[in-house]
């Protein structure tokens, strides 16, 4: 028997208790803030983008343990990726990097994906030249 029981696995707990990339980027190139229809949580991701690549990412989250862990993990994963790559980012990647989430908590990782995409959209709106380059991919019909 263990003498320390946790609701989530150790990776999730670690990202919840010691979130990476917490905060706002002062000179962010794209900011996305989304709310979850399901339970009412709110997530905000800001991005620093240079030469078509995500240089830096920060998050703030009003939500449960897995929402905080998901946003922490999502910002870790997307740093260094190109915009095109980031456009096809999926919550599944967050879930596997976290070593799994309880079924009822999968939607919290979806919120992280949505916040990231909202931040990218915000960036592309301000940079139509980039939008033109990535749009064909962005508009590909969903699988």
């Amino acid at each position: 028997m263990s003498d320390n029981y946790t609701l989530y696995n150790q990776t999730v707990m670690d990202h919840f208790l010691n979130p990476r990339n917490l905060g706002d980027l002062k000179d962010a190139d794209g900011v996305g803030e989304v709310g979850a229809a399901a339970c009412g949580d709110i997530m905000k991701i800001s991005l620093k983008i240079e030469d078509g690549k995500i240089k830096d990412a920060r998050f703030k989250t009003f939500g449960c343990g897995s929402a905080i862990a998901s946003s922490s993990m999502a910002t870790e994963l997307i740093k260094g990726r190109s915009i095109e790559e980031a456009m096809s980012f999926s919550n599944q990647e967050v879930v596997s990097a976290l070593g799994g989430l309880p079924p009822v908590k999968i939607h919290c990782s979806v919120l992280a994906e949505e916040a990231l995409k909202a931040a990218l959209e915000d960036y592309l709106k301000k940079h139509p030249e980039m939008a033109a380059r990535v749009q064909p991919k962005a508009e590909a019909p969903p699988a």
């Binding site: 979130p19 917490l22 706002d24 803030e33 709110i42 997530m43 703030k60 989250t61 009003f62």
Partner: peptide, 8 residues
């Protein structure tokens, strides 16, 4: 609260 966008 330091993590919350709403507090900010």
């Amino acid at each position: 609260r330091a993590m919350s966008p709403m507090w900010d």
